[in-house]
Design a protein around this nucleic acid. Structure first.
Lengths: 112, 112
DNA sequence: AACTATACCTGGAGTCTCCAGGTATAGGCG
DNA sequence: CGCCTATACCTGGAGACTCCAGGTATAGTT
């Protein structure tokens, strides 16, 4: 698994990025992350939900309870405008740090 | 500045990477990071020192007080073998998360 | 009727950044 | 010589966050 610090740094960008593709809900976000990482990352759901709540409190997300075709109740989350701006900021910050590490590691810089 | 989470995720890899180029000391590490980021990142030194202490406690670094040519006392830090292994792990983890974000953001994957 | 997978939530322990404040000294300047 | 600035290190407490253990509920399968 990841160090707690890297986990902390990546949850928010990952959630924002996944939701930028369209609304989703906790459980699905979890599986999406697991799939994206080829099974390497698997957050406990008890870690994810509080993060979603905090992000909603800060106005980055909005949520609505709906019943899926499967009959189950789900809490769907979608990005707000503020959330979209936050994603842009987080992305820039990530790329900033990534560029520094890439330089230290002798990797080629990313073309933007 | 960075979000506290990204700051947390990047301090350790940055320190380990900088020290992998040769020993250094707190104040110089700070300026190295500032230079690498083109002035964007500037950690408070009160944030860095406890991190160095913790890393030494975990056996990732070793330190020695020496007097520089300038006459000042400095605490030089160097990587231990354990530190070198930790760097390798952190690097893999970073690249893992980076690959996930790159995919979500539609960036080209990094060639290893 | 029992089980599994889906789907959500909370509380407390431990850990970490951040900030404010503190100590000490070399070198330059008046 | 006395003052200032840059260099160089340290600590304590506040606040924030992940992690884990535990809990609730229900659709579908056996």
């Amino acid at each position: 698994m990841l160090t707690r610090e890297l986990a902390g740094a990546s949850v928010r960008p990952l959630i924002l990025s996944i939701l930028s593709e369209g609304e989703s809900y906790g459980y699905a976000i979890l599986s999406r992350i697991e799939a994206l990482s080829d099974g390497v990352l698997a957050w406990d759901d008890g870690t994810l939900y509080p993060v979603l709540h905090r992000m909603q409190n800060k106005g980055l997300l909005e949520s609505s309870w709906r019943r899926a075709d499967t009959g189950r109740r789900r809490k769907y989350y979608a990005l707000t405008d503020k959330g979209r701006r936050a994603l842009e900021r987080e992305k820039q910050q990530w790329l900033q740090v990534d560029a520094m590490l890439a330089e230290l590691w002798g990797l080629q810089p990313r073309l933007t």
